[in-house]
Design a protein around this nucleic acid. Structure first.
Lengths: 207, 207
DNA sequence: CCAAACTGTAAGTGTCCACTTACAGTTTGT
DNA sequence: ACAAACTGTAAGTGGACACTTACAGTTTGG
């Protein structure tokens, strides 16, 4: 399938831009429906294409899903970046907690993860998820350390180890908020309180 | 399908005992594989039956899944009860945290929940899950309150509200530990530390 | 201007899976 | 003993779904 002429590169670029136009739509479908229920027919419908047109852009549903994982990751990161630039005297970590409390589950971060883990048992997908998750976690760890500043009684190693735990805990809170939301377990208000309340307590736990 | 004669009740009882023999096997299949990948063929294979024999005991795969949800719930509760009876000067809440730290994900509590939420979009299943989750949560709340004892500076209402948050947070930690485990994100040691460390801190948060 | 590559539309194909039917053999209650 | 109910075995059925093929119409580069 590779091609050598110079002219081709333009075509491939076009293909790439086409993919990047469609991937948010596809991602949303996976978030809404999970892996199996997001059928190729449904993906095509949402993209306003025929199925075989989708298959001209991706070679399998699996590769669409992997693109979606990357899309979610990139989207979350860019949201956090704009939070970093926003005004306010809170630390970025605090801003993120407030933001997540207000928009829990919007990005569908966890929905994608659950879908990838449970519905498909594919090593490629698992490693894509692992990668995303680890990057997400390590970003969180940096934010937590930054939040507390350099001047700590503890040694750097201790602080990092504890920040890692707290980061997992925060991710856990997000997960449960997502689950909560998807079965309408509690009210939106309560969910918000959960993230804001417990999230901040966790953040201060190191101190 | 109902029947009136007295003799029938014995048959139904037999059917019931048959179901209760098989349901742990079926539950384990759903835990291992999720909803879709646990095909009726696979369920039958694990039960050492033919598919239509399964369908003599349950009228659909969905009802097998609902039975599995109830099985998981009952199993977890009875485990906790035996922990309550075990010796040791910790509170039951602390015992549960230690136990979960050692056996995270064994029961497949969260796997079942994720499967039910994502893979099927069925009101009956959602309400079965919601019920289980709420009972689980309220049991946890009682345990947390019990752990702290009656003598608190706060009013009862405040204590309950905070215990509810903490209970969700603990469930969240469990969820993330399960995810972690299923993609081998961190080591078992780290996971154990996460549950034990953060779990206990959360438990003390009220104080 | 024309050939090569792309886009749009429609109709499959093969496979998997939940669920069913048919039927012979065995219990069970009376 | 005998009918009614149950168990075991085997073979379907219908539908959904990932993925493909065919082909006519349109761009595009040289």
């Amino acid at each position: 399938m590779d091609t050598y002429s110079l002219g081709m590169s333009k075509i491939f670029q076009k293909k790439e831009t086409r993919r990047s136009e469609l991937i948010p739509v596809i991602t949303q479908a996976f978030v809404d429906l999970g892996y199996n229920r997001a059928t190729t027919a449904e993906l095509a419908r949402r993209c306003e294409l025929r199925e075989n047109e989708l298959y001209r852009l991706w070679d399998s549903k699996k590769s669409m899903f992997i693109s979606a994982i990357q899309c979610i990751y990139a989207g979350t990161m860019s949201e956090w970046e704009s939070l970093a630039k926003s005004r306010g005297n809170e630390s970025l970590a605090e801003k993120i907690i407030s933001y997540q409390a207000a928009n829990h589950g919007k990005a569908g971060f966890f929905r994608i993860i659950f879908a990838g883990l449970q519905e498909v048992n594919d090593p490629e997908i698992k490693s894509a998820l692992r990668e995303m998750y680890q990057q997400f976690h390590s970003t969180f760890v940096s934010l937590i350390l930054e939040h507390h500043g350099e001047s700590d009684a503890k040694t750097a190693d201790e602080a990092v180890a504890e920040a890692k735990l707290v980061a997992w805990a925060l991710i856990g809170i997000g997960a449960i908020a997502d689950i909560d939301r998807s079965i309408n377990l509690t009210s939106a208000t309560q969910r918000k309180r959960l993230i804001n309340g417990v999230g901040r307590d966790l953040l201060e736990m190191l101190a």
